[in-house]
Amino acid sequence: MSDAQTKSNKNWWVLFLPLVVFIGLVVFLLKGLGSDPTKLESVLIDKPVPEFSAVDLFNDNIQHTEKVLYDGPLLMNVWATWCPTCRAEHEFLNKLAAQGVPIVGLNYQDDSRAKAIDWLNTLGDPYTVNIFDPEGDVAFEFGVYGAPETYFIDANGKIRYRHVGDVNQRNWENKLQKIYQQLQQESSS
């Protein structure tokens, strides 16, 4: 066997290097294709709910603090009348509330308080507590960047999951219900 031949035998695997790099790139880019760039991971996951103080949507004399979120597990839904997707999910929130899922409502920078109250009076009020946040100060503490957003809060007042976009029958059955049931199991055990 000549010198050149042993050398090429030794380095045959180098020929596969571009293929390996290519496959790696394909896997990496395919993963990126499936993810929605407008959906942000919340940085508050597994952290206690931030402190806040805000009045009740219906009554100026009632003050709510982060304590209302310690009665979990519960959901906190961020909504406003200017948000069409909130309108779309409202029916389903009513349904969840009827099934006994506690939902705290955070009215986020709404056009007017009267509009928000009118919305709940005509479409039904699925919320156990209604927090009024006209300047978005409470929402800012949660890192809210749009509406609707739904936070899953456990029995210890920790934020465990954030869902961006509407809650509907499909994503509730496929994913969200499991998360909520998990929190329920944790609190009962």
Partner: peptide
């Protein structure tokens, strides 16, 4: 800001 909205 980062504590609320992340490194994004």
């Amino acid at each position: 800001m980062v504590a609320r909205y992340g490194n994004f």
